[in-house]
């Protein structure tokens, strides 16, 4: 479930990145974050599938809920990290302008 949530986040970010008019929002960073995590969880899922076989696709509801909660937390954390990078790099100069305002 965590893998699925992260993959969906990666796909949505990639679509937004493709549709962007300029690189001011640094969406590429967010894409790399989500795709990197998705690929790594894919590796984890391969080993889990090798161990559990068809049981891999029928997780217990409690495990699924926990994994969903984890997946959503991961998305929130990645977005916080992206926001911090965006504010530090400040490609639009909005933070600088706000700080320079008298």
């Amino acid at each position: 479930m965590t893998l699925l949530v992260t993959v969906f986040a990666a796909i949505i970010c990639t679509i937004l990145w493709y549709k962007r008019k300029n690189d001011e929002m640094r969406l590429g960073t967010l894409c790399f974050l989500f795709w990197g995590a998705s690929l790594m969880w894919l590796g984890d899922a391969i080993f889990e599938y090798a161990e559990l076989h068809e049981e891999f696709f029928t997780p217990a509801p409690a495990d699924m809920l926990n994994d969903l909660y984890l997946g959503l937390s991961v998305v929130a954390l990645a977005m916080i990290l992206w926001l911090i990078i965006l504010l530090i790099k400040d490609p639009k100069g909005a933070v600088r302008r706000a700080l320079q305002k008298k």
Partner: peptide, 14 residues
């Protein structure tokens, strides 16, 4: 590097 840092960071959280 971005792919690896992103993946490692989010997996560390997991």
């Amino acid at each position: 590097a971005y792919l690896l840092w992103g993946g490692a960071f989010l997996l560390a959280y997991e």
